[in-house]
Each structure stands twice: as structure tokens, then as C-alpha cells.
């Protein structure tokens, strides 16, 4: 039986949406992982969005020191698939699992709207079901989504094809229109937009469905 872990930090608020996505799209059991846990026995891990520790100090900073993140580091180094969405992406950069950092939007304001994205890599467990160059629409909802990295990091990201999603129209000032990246090994992905909120045309777009289907087929093939 496949299981997908969804990490819950104090202040996470997209955990229910991530659990629902796993259970409805993948038809797989979602297991809540508590921030104090220090072991992981699931087949993939989702770090959901929200405001862990109120985003106080820096988004993701306090959460990155929690026991579960030490476990996520070991899990990821063993090749386990990990995706961080929004605040989850911020936690992944704060813990060093992904390069770069997420700064305040250049508008300085919170931005909540649907954005068009370009899929730029389908080499990750989460994007296999997309075509490179495909356009998808996901909602964004963040104040600190402005991705920045030094020139050599950007060069590495480009050379290794680690840029996974790019904004068609850059909403927040991100370097190179970056909306999502992976690590070099491609098992860890972080993105600011919310695929788990894009699962039905009734709620505007269902473009997020292939992301969870990709993970399912990856797990079925590898576990």
C-alpha cells in the first residue's frame, strides 16, 4: 500500500488541501507527519503551504530547524521524493535542500491570483506527466515568492535542467521568472504556485491533476 506523508508544522494551513489532493487524485493514503516526528516511513513527502510559525523572523526559518526536517534531509538524501509547495518551498530553501532563497515580492504586497506557468522540466517525479513547454494555470498566494540566487547557482540550475516551472508573466520579481526548481538529483522539488488548489474546473482550473498523477505513476513504477 502506497502512502504519502504530509508534514504539519504549527501554522501550516494548506495541509488539508494536500491531503485531499493525495486521496482524491492519487487514491492513495495520506499520512500526517507531525513536526516533532523524527522518522518517515512513507513513499513520498509533501511540505504544504501556510505560515509555519507565523512566518515570523523569515518564512520557513523556524520550521527548518524542527525534528521532522532533520528526518526529511535523510529521507531526501536516500532519494525519497519530496515536494514543497509555497511555504514548503521556503522551508526547503531555508534547510538547504534546495538552492537559493525566496524574498519579499517586488510589489511588497501579498499576491493572490491565477498565474500561467511554463513547464520547463518533466524529469522530476512530480512533472513526468507534463510536456516540456506546456502551459498550465495554478493559483499563487504569497508575499515572499521572489526567487533569488547568485549567478553561479542560476548557471548550475540551467545547466542541470533544474528549473521546473517558469512564470509566463513574472508576478513577484523572481530571477529568470523561476516559479519552481528541483535539486540536482531531481527528487526534491519546490514551487510557489499551488497545484493542490487546481484540481477541478469548477474551482477554475484542473491543471494540477497531472502533477499528482505523475507522482502516482512514479511511485507505482519505483516502489
Amino acid at each position: 500500500m502506497l502512502k504519502v506523508g504530509v508534514v504539519i508544522f504549527p501554522g501550516s494551513n494548506c495541509d488539508l488541501d494536500a491531503i485531499r489532493a493525495v486521496e482524491t487524485v492519487m487514491n492513495v493514503k495520506a499520512v500526517p507527519l507531525w513536526h516533532q516526528d523524527n522518522t518517515i516511513d512513507t513513499d513520498a513527502v509533501i511540505l504544504p503551504g501556510g505560515f509555519s510559525y507565523g512566518d515570523y523572523l523569515r518564512p520557513g526559518a523556524i520550521a527548518s530547524h524542527s525534528p521532522i526536517m532533520q528526518a526529511v534531509k535523510i529521507y531526501a538524501s536516500n532519494g525519497g521524493p519530496v515536494i514543497g509547495i509555497c511555504n514548503g518551498f521556503q522551508i526547503l530553501t531555508e534547510s538547504g535542500l534546495l538552492p537559493g532563497t525566496l524574498l519579499r515580492n517586488t510589489t511588497t504586497r501579498f499576491i493572490s491570483r491565477d498565474v500561467s506557468l511554463l513547464v520547463t522540466s518533466n524529469q522530476t517525479p512530480f512533472t513526468k506527466g507534463f510536456a516540456v513547454g506546456q502551459k498550465v494555470t495554478f493559483p499563487i498566494a504569497h508575499k515572499d515568492g521572489n526567487y533569488q540566487a547568485d549567478p553561479s547557482t542560476l548557471q548550475t540550475l540551467q545547466e542541470n535542467n533544474q528549473i521546473v516551472f517558469q512564470y509566463v508573466e513574472n508576478p513577484n520579481g523572481s530571477l529568470h521568472d523561476i516559479a519552481g526548481i528541483s535539486n540536482k538529483e531531481r527528487n526534491v522539488v519546490g514551487l510557489m504556485p499551488h497545484p493542490e488548489r487546481a484540481l477541478s474546473d469548477w474551482t477554475r482550473t484542473s491543471d494540477g491533476v497531472p502533477l499528482f498523477q505523475s507522482l502516482l505513476s512514479h511511485l507505482e513504477a519505483h516502489v
Partner: peptide, 13 residues
């Protein structure tokens, strides 16, 4: 609130 939350995190660390 920010100071209070950071204090808590420092104690935890």
C-alpha cells in the same frame, strides 16, 4: 508576537 515565537523557537533549540 514575532519576538514571542522566536523566543519559543530558541528555547526549543
Amino acid at each position: 508576537p514575532q519576538g514571542k515565537t522566536v523566543q519559543h523557537a530558541l528555547l526549543n533549540l
